[in-house]
Computed example of a mutant assay.
Amino acid sequence: MSLTRRLALLSLLALVACGAPGTNAPPAPEGVIFAPNFSDIHPVDFQGRAPQRFPVQGIDAARFQDSIDWNKARRNGVNFAFLKATEGGDLLDPAFKHHWRDAGRAGVERGAYHFYYFCTSPEDQARWFIRNVPRTPGMLPPVLDMEWNPFSPTCAHIRPPARDVRDQMRRWIKIVEAHFGQRPIIYTTPKFYEDNGLRSFRGYDFWLRSTAENVSEAYPGQSWKFWQYSATGIIPGIVGEVDLNVFNGSRADWTAWLAAHKR
């Protein structure tokens, strides 16, 4: 064999061993919790316990994250992912199906979320979510995403009284919980939380957005399971920016929570 061909063969073998550009990394062992290898374009100096100190981290993803090597992302600390499924009563995120499939194949703990609109009944929205999200063994609880929506051409101006908001949430949750056999997680923002008195929801796990201050400062006294602390994360295996999240607890707490909440 000529020296040139020998060098070419060695180069090819090296690429196969390391993962050639554009190919997926091999699946990681099931059940392993990976330490985060995350960076942030706009990092925040959070007061109190910084999110980087939480051992179990993950992301949420939608159509904006259109190129994810889930195996590689998992090995770099994406232990869980909340994936956008639906909006209102007739919008399906175009990336949901392949995110759902590929994250599952990579062993990422995954759940689906619904972005709520106030111009469609909670019953219609619950049925739309159920129609598009499969009851998959091992899935995380469904998520109800509650925030004011300034971008919708039809719903942006509709802001019901707080009592009506809470009633609509409970109606959506009742239907979805009955179908999936899991109590949904509530996602919200500081303003929506305060405007609508969501502290009155007891017995629910909260996923809270707070990208400018510590979650304990943004939601005084509120217990939480997940904290979305950045919208500008960078993770190997994901092209572009992505939301970063932490689980509130130790690795043992995470394992126990999964055992109690996965379907």
Rank of each mutant, 00 (worst) to 15 (best):
E241G: 04
F129A: 05
P150Q: 01
T136F: 06
G77K: 05
G233C: 12
T23N: 01
R127H: 09
T255F: 06
L92V: 15
G181L: 11
R53I: 02
Y229W: 14
N71Y: 01
Y229F: 15
S67N: 07
I173M: 10
S230L: 06
D145Q: 03
F118R: 12
F180E: 00
T86G: 09
G249Y: 06
A35Q: 11
A252N: 11
L244A: 10
I186P: 09
R159N: 03
M139A: 07
R110K: 13
A25C: 01
R127W: 07
D66M: 04
K262Y: 01
A14T: 03
N214A: 08
H98K: 08
K72R: 12
L13V: 03
I234E: 04
R101A: 12
S152P: 14
T86K: 13
L208M: 11
H98R: 10
N132R: 14
A178M: 08
Q168P: 00
G240H: 06
G58H: 02
H179K: 06
F192K: 03
R101K: 06
F115Q: 11
Y113K: 14
A126K: 15
P21H: 09
A50E: 09
I130V: 09
Q57K: 04
D164L: 05
P160A: 10
A25H: 09
W257T: 05
M169N: 00
S223R: 11
D102F: 01
D90V: 08
F34L: 04
M139P: 11
V176G: 00
L7R: 03
A50W: 06
A231D: 07
G138R: 07
P220L: 13
A73H: 02
M139C: 06
W227L: 11
F151G: 01
L12Y: 00
N196E: 09
Q52T: 11
D167Q: 02
Q65F: 07
Q125I: 02
Y117N: 12
A212K: 15
W254D: 01
M169Y: 09
R263K: 15
K97A: 14
A156M: 07
I41E: 02
T232G: 07
R5V: 04
L83M: 14
R75N: 01
E241N: 12
F247Q: 05
R199D: 14
W100Y: 13
K191E: 15
